[in-house]
Every structure is written in C-alpha cells, then in structure tokens.
Design a binder for these strands. Structure first.
Length: 730
RNA sequence: GGACGGUUAGCUCAGUUGGUAGAGCAACUCGUUUACACCGAGAAGGUCACAGGUUCGAGUCCUGUACCGUCCACCA
C-alpha cells in the first residue's frame, strides 16, 4: 500500500497535480478521446456550452454551483462513452464592463472615456477584460471543470463578431431588425438605452399631488413632467364626465400661463384611480405614448437626455428635474392649483439594474428587433414547423417550448416563460456605449448600407452605437461551434444537449438563444434547460459585499477541498430553488472525502496479501455486490433525470453507512476467520465495490477519487490509467 | 393588480405513479491498542401550516384560508 494512505486526505497537496494530469492527457477534448480510442468514433455526442461568466470580476459561489452541476453532467456522460464536449468562454458584458473600467479610470486619473477617446478607451477595456478572463479561467480550473480549453471563445472575439454581423444582416434583410423613433428606456446616468428586462422597478415613498386642471382634478407623482400636458384623458364610459366630448377644447390656467387643452377618451383609463382623469406626457411615459399613438396626438420632449428641463418649461428650463420639482410645486401652490397632497404615496420608479440610474423614457431613433413580424423561415428542423413556413419570432419562441422540443427543468418555469413572451415588446438592441459589437450599418448622406463587411468607397461612416450584449450571447450555442461556417463541430454538437444556468437569466439569455437559434439555424439551441437557483448564506440571505456574508469558492477550496465545496453545492439543492450554504455544510463533505480515503486504506491493507485468483464468490459477497448494483442503477437514473441532489446523497449514504459501517465491519470478522475461501471472496468483493464506488463518485468528487485511483496498486488494476475516462460502473 | 413557488424532526432539506413518515447537521447516552475521532454503537425527536373534500387508505389528488418568498405589470 502507498504510504500516502497513512495520513489523512490532503486536498491541497493533490488537486493541482490532478488537474494537470487531466489537462495533459488531452481528454477534455472529445476529439482526443476518439483519437486515443477512449471514445468510439461512432459514439453519440453530448454537448453543453458554459454560460460565459462576465469579465467584470471574479467567480462567486453561484458560478461554483453551476460549474459543479455541469461538470457532473459532463463527467457522467463521458464515462458513459459519449463523445462529450463542454465548451468554455467568457462574456464581454458590454455595459457592466465599460461601466467598471470607466469608474476605475476616473478613480485613478480623474478622466472620462471622452477624455481618452474611443480607441484608447477601448484598449483599456480590452486589457481589463483580458486580466479578468485569466482570473476566471484559473478559478474554473480550481473547481475541477473538465472543460475543453482548446475551443475557448469570447463573446467579443473575431469569430463571434463575424457571427454577430452575419446575424444582423440577415435579420435586417428579413425586416426583423428596423430603425425607428420609438419610446425607449433611457438611462441619463450611463447615457444609453437599456432593454425592458434591464429595467428594475423599485418602490419609493413619494408625495402625490392633486392638481386643478381647468374643470378637472388630475393626479401626479411627477409634476415636473406636466409642462407640455395639453391633452386631458378620461374613460369613454365615465358618467361623471359625460358632458365633455372627444376633441372638445377647453381653456385653462396652467403652470406657466393659460393653455388650451383637448379632451380625449380612451379605455386605458382606470375610472377607479384618483379622479378618473389624467393628462398625458407621451414623450416620457409608455402608456401615454400609446394613448398618443392611438389618437394621433402631438408628442413633445420636456426633459433632455441629461435629465434637465427644456425651454418648454419656461422659467424652469435648464434645471435638473430632481431640483426643479420642489420649485414647480411651489409655483403651482402659489397659483392655487394644488388641491390636495398625499405624502405617503408608494410609487414604482424604474431604475437601470446595471448602473442604478433612474430611467427616463424618451422617444429616440434606435434599432429594434421586431418580435411580431411575420416572415418565412427558410429552413427548419423544428417539430411542427416546416421549412418555408410563415412564422414570427414570438411564435418560434413559444412553439419549441410548448411542444416539448425544448424542455425546461423545473417544469413550472415554462409558465413564467410563456407569460413573459406573451407580454413581450420589440427588443431595443442599440446601445450608446463603446464596448461591444458595433452595429454593421454605414451612412453617407442619405444613403444607408447594411452588410457583413464595410461598404466600398469613400465617405461612409459607421453607426456609432453598439449592440446589446445579449445579442451576441443569444448566438452562443452555435457561434462557438463555428457558425456561420458549416463546420463539423456545428454538425456534430448542435443542438446542444443541456443548457444549465440560473433562473434569473431565463428572459435575458435563454429566451434570446431560442429566438436566435431557431431563426438563424432552424434548430433549437438545446434540448433541455436546467435552471439552478440562487446560493444564499446559512441564514437564507442573499450574499453581498455590504452584508459581508460572501462565501468565496476558492477560499473554501483552500480550506476544505474542491470536492467538499462541490458536494455542498449539490446535495440539498433542487433545480429552480434557492439553496443555503454554510461552512459547516462544506466541512461535512470534507470529512466524507477523508472517509473515502480511509475506506481505501482499509481495503488495500486487508486485501493485499490475499490470493484473489480463481475464486468464486460466496452468497454473502454476491448479495452485497447485487445490492450495490441496484443502488447504482437508481443513482444512474437520478443523474439521467437531473436529480443530482439525490444521486449525491445516495452515494454519500451508501459509501459511509452501507459500505463502511456494514460491509467493512462484517468483513473484519470474515477476514479474521479461518475460512480461506471466504477470506478471498471477501477481498475480491471489497475491491470490486471500491472500484465501482470510486467510478460512481468521480463526477461528484473528481479530485479525491482520481487521487485514490492514481495510488491504487497498478498490478491489480484492470482498467484505464485515468479514472476520468473509465467506464461508468453500470 | 396578475402569475409562480414554498410551508414535513431544533436547523437544512428529501419523500418519483396516493399504501404505517426519511437523510444530513445539531443536541443526548455509551465507546478509543490497530481503516478513519475528519470515528463507531445506541436512543430521542414530526397532528407533514390550517379547514374542508375525493378515497378502503392522503405528506402526496381537489377546493378554500393563512403566512413566507420570487417574478411580471402602463394605474396617471
């Protein structure tokens, strides 16, 4: 027996060397597995893409959970003989990364991106992204991920940029991308638009004002937007206002003097709310915008892109809306127009979840993806939709989930998904930031050119805007496999088998991937979506810097070993549910790694000297092996059905409380007995169960099992040199 | 306002098609000269949130209620 087993299992000493062993073997790459005869060249493939972590920082424990689940899937399928690809990468996270680098530069040099200029600034962001990428890759390796580094991608590298330009051009030609004046979410702080999904509604207590507006009383929480209000709207069935007719004009005294207001009747008005009458500000409110569109009303901009009032505000022009509100209220009061105030009004304010600015809706010229437009899908492998059939993007997104071609786990998220799509509006994809894929459109005078490559000739100027980061992420399952080229990888590994990601990006990412993939490739992007929950602290609180309760996965790996961290993130964690993590839990699994180590020690010490040639097993030994195989079958089924928490727990229970506590204890008696045949049979049984147990545990705790495997006496080993590519034991 | 979850042992959670309630951790008792104290043996601990219903039988299915959580939403 190797002397190593005389001391407790030391994860720190072994993990680095084990990862190097795997990496050097080349077996993370499925092509190498085929070349070296590990995987059958005709084998079915199994592929997943890594949800690319943002290059804004370092990995957190949520990433560690994701990596653990994906690595289990990958190792399991590899051991089952499938041609298994796990493809890594990182995400440029446009706004988030730019924002972070801008902050750093301002802190260090008090310069803005405009001081540096586009080119210099982008170089700085690239440097930052590269550094962050290196850190992240190191962390992914620390977690034991058996991922194919030879295929690593970046959402903003050359190959992905070609995919983005190709996708844009195609959508543009199909009229699915259009440019137009529409109301968008404008972040005055970051000076860019953001998508509807990025807007976060936060409740805030504020004052609600009831204002005299001619014969009416209107309510508002934002008096500073009311300057341009020249339409007064009520429900057509509201009996209280029967005497007022649509289109009727009334003269009234308003903030800056007398104005003429027009009566509008619209069913969007809630008769129960306030007085049942409101004025509208179409330029800065989505509902108002839609009312104005329906009745063909004028729209006027009141607030500029920095949040300051425009000349329409008269004496208040040039003031920031935050400061102006109180002054405007004062003036309204002095004119006797404030009827009543409610100081405890709870108002939903829209903020940008990326940077925290308060969103000011604005009507702007922007690029959009039309989700309702009918078009002809040229090629389809989608069940129930034929090549050449007329569809919409919305229809594609709903269809593939509805018919089960894409299965969401847990199932109830499908309902949330449908609900979201049914309320989906056109996706604003242009951003006024620099870090990202530049929109592949060029202008010259009145001419516009859209293409994969820049147009020939002089005087063309490319659109200044970049694309929403999720546009390129949406292409991730196939852009990483070589699309738009028709590569072998694409043919072999797409659609991917599983997408494993957090439920928090179901809309941002999962839905967008389904949209892009079905449209551009005619294939679903993945067969299953496995959604994991949030990892919270031991008390169920969200981990955050301000609470100081962040558990760093690398720290925990140093302290307890990566296997312990992985198991603690798997067991007790059902898909779609948030889970709790504490150091105590991790410690428990560190003990388990050591238990396994000592189980091995016992088996080696007590079977080495025993003859195991040509021995038939007795009834008891056969029974133990049969029982174990039954358990293994159950566990295999659990993994196949994405119940990793059950599989992990069952293996833990079997190893500790059946194999160690029962079988080994009973074996002690037999090994000390006088029946030589029974001794040999027991030794064989112990070895066999141990070997199978190591294989079955390998996806869950790869380091400890591989480390043990490497120290088993070579003379008695029948299998392969590296446990990672051994065959699954059942 | 709408939708989706959850409520099972002190804590964290399992409980797959309805058939006498399970695991880990913690707490309790006992045990240490050889696999492991990063250990073993043993015992204790639950009206399965509540109220109805279906059934021979309900933690599991149906209806309603309460509380907790999450997401979505254009109530000025």
């Amino acid at each position: 027996m190797d002397d190593k087993f005389l001391k407790p299992y030391d994860s720190k000493e072994t993990e680095g060397a084990i990862y190097k062993l795997w990496e050097d073997s080349g077996f993370f790459n499925p092509d190498v597995c085929v070349e070296k005869g590990i995987t059958d060249s005709e084998a079915e493939s199994f592929s997943i893409v890594l949800p690319p972590p943002n290059v804004t920082g370092t990995l957190h424990v949520g990433h560690a959970a994701m990596l653990a689940i994906e690595d289990i899937l990958v190792r399991f399928n590899r051991m089952r003989g499938k041609r298994t690809l796990w493809l890594p990468g990182t995400d440029h996270a446009a706004i988030a990364t730019q924002e972070k680098v801008e902050k750093n530069i301002y802190k260090e040099e008090e310069k803005t991106r405009h001081d540096l200029g586009r080119e210099v600034f982008l170089k700085r962001v690239e440097d930052y992204a590269q550094e962050s990428r290196d850190t992240i890759v190191g962390q992914i390796k620390r977690m034991g991920s058996s991922i194919d580094w030879s295929r690593e991608a970046y959402t903003l590298d050359k190959a992905r940029n070609l995919a983005v330009r190709t996708a844009f051009k195609k959508m543009y030609d199909d009229d699915l991308i259009y440019r137009g004046h529409r109301i968008v979410n404008w972040d005055p702080k970051l000076q860019t638009t953001v998508s509807d999904e990025e807007v976060e509604h936060v409740e805030e207590k504020t004052t609600f004002y009831y204002l005299q507006y001619g014969p009416f009383v209107i309510g508002t929480a934002r008096p500073e937007t009311k300057f341009g209000d020249k339409y007064v709207v009520m429900h057509p069935n509201d009996k209280r206002y029967e005497e007022y007719k649509e289109g009727q004009e009334i003269e009234l005294e308003w903030i800056n003097g007398p104005i003429k207001a027009t009566i509008i009747k619209d069913k969007a008005i809630d008769m129960e709310f306030g007085t049942g009458v409101m004025t509208i500000t179409p330029w800065h409110d989505v509902v108002d915008f839609e009312i104005a569109e329906r009745h063909n009303l004028d729209k006027e901009q009141i607030i500029d892109y920095k949040g300051k009032l425009l000349p329409i505000a008269g004496e208040f022009a040039g003031q920031h809306i935050k400061k102006a509100r109180a002054l405007i209220v004062e003036k309204l009061k002095s004119k006797g127009l404030v009827v009543k105030t409610d100081e405890n009004y709870i108002h939903n304010i829209a903020t940008d979840s990326r940077g925290g600015g308060v969103i000011e809706p604005q009507i702007m010229m922007q690029w959009f993806i039309d989700v309702n437009k009918e078009f002809k899908l040229p090629y389809s492998e989608i069940n129930g939709i034929a090549s050449g059939e007329m569809v919409t993007l919305k229809k594609l997104m709903i269809h593939v989930v509805e018919n089960g071609q894409v299965e969401i786990i847990p199932d109830h998220f499908s309902k949330i998904y449908f609900h979201w799509i049914n309320n989906l509006r056109d996706w604003c994809i242009s951003r006024q930031i620099w870090y990202g894929h530049r929109i592949p459109v060029w202008y010259r005078g009145d001419e516009t050119y859209t293409g994969v490559e820049a147009p020939e000739g002089d005087g063309w100027k490319q659109d200044e805007d970049t694309l929403d980061t999720w546009f390129s992420s949406g292409l991730w399952t196939f852009s990483t496999l070589g699309w738009p080229e028709k590569t072998d990888d694409l043919k072999r590994y797409h659609p991917t088998d599983v997408l494993e990601t957090g439920y928090d990006i179901l809309f941002f990412w999962v839905a967008r991937m389904i949209l892009m993939s079905t449209y551009l490739t005619g294939q679903i992007p993945f067969k299953k979506v496995y959604l994991h929950g949030l990892v919270r602290d031991g008390q169920g609180r969200k981990m955050s810097k301000s609470l100081g309760n962040i558990i760093d996965p690398v720290d925990m790996s140093d302290k307890f070993g990566t296997d312990a961290v992985r198991l603690s993130l798997i067991v007790g964690t059902a898909p779609g549910n948030d889970s709790k993590l504490s150091e105590d839990k991790i410690r428990g699994y560190k003990n388990f790694a050591n238990k396994l180590w000592n189980i091995t020690r016992f088996v080696l010490e007590n079977t080495e000297e025993i003859n195991t040639e040509n021995i038939e097993l007795g009834a008891w030994q056969q029974e133990q092996i049969k029982e174990f195989e039954k358990t293994l079958e159950e566990i295999t089924g659990d993994i196949e059905n994405y119940r990793f928490y059950l599989a992990g727990e069952k293996l833990y229970h079997y190893a500790w409380h059946i194999f160690a506590d029962k079988i080994i204890e009973e074996s002690k008696v037999r090994l000390n007995g006088s029946d030589e045949k029974d001794k040999s049979a027991t030794a064989i049984m112990l070895q066999e169960i141990l070997h199978k147990l190591l294989k079955a545990l390998h996806p869950f705790m790869p380091f400890a099992t591989e480390s043990i495997w490497q120290h088993l006496p070579k003379s008695k080993m029948k299998g392969r040199e590296i446990l990672m590519v051994e065959k699954w034991p059942i």
